[in-house]
Design a protein around this nucleic acid. Sequence first.
DNA 1: CGCGTTTGACCTGCGC
DNA 2: GCGCAGGTCAAACGCG
Length: 231
Amino acid sequence: MDYEKVESLEVELQHVKDENNALRLMLEDERRKYKNLQSYLLEIKNNESSYVHSLDTNKRTRLEEFPTAKKPLQVYVKTHPMDDSLIIKDGYQWRKYGQKVTKDNASPRAYFRCSMAPNCSAKKKVQRCVYDRSIIVATYDGEHNHDDAFHHSFLPSSSGNNNSPLTIIQNYKEALNIMEQNEHGIKIEEYVSSLIKDPEFTVAIAEAVAQSIIAQPMQQCLNFNLGHPQE
DNA sequence: CGCGTTTGACCTGCGC
DNA sequence: GCGCAGGTCAAACGCG
């Protein structure tokens, strides 16, 4: 084997090692996310009730804003991970009046008022879950004081409206289902992890790279003959 | 032109 | 009393 070939193989091997390290980092990140999700689930379990307050990062209670003694209803909405909007089709018409980035969640929190009636005191805060960005946490405050509220809500106070394309999560059991979905992710993760740990896997990649390097001059020759531009 | 959204400034309560 | 952080206001802007 000539010197140039060995050198290029060493470069490619280094590249494979770099990719390997990158994959390890990704796995560590995924494991961290999974642990976060587990603690999140535990939090939900600890607070399991129709009124869940665990995710409300607002530790201070502004009594003048929401004077009712009733705890705000929190609803978790499973959305598509690629969907960045904070819009929840809950049947009401909401007017956004503010947005704020909170300290412990990089996702901005949006503030909405009900716009179906001029004197309606209903408000909601919408923010992506810090543990799983595909979940939107909507915190409802105040009550709708207009009749048509009864016909629009998907919330437990009304009859079930399942027309929404979104998945509504109102208790820990449904959150558990999401966890189970992530369990599949962990199985994939374990599979990838085992591949990385396997020395034969790394050797096989190195061999494949070496073969591609050997085959490359032939491909370049073919490209040249066909008139394709060379890289 | 009206309505909804955006966004920076401001207000207010809480913790130290 | 002060600083921090969440919540609200309101002017500017965009869109139908």
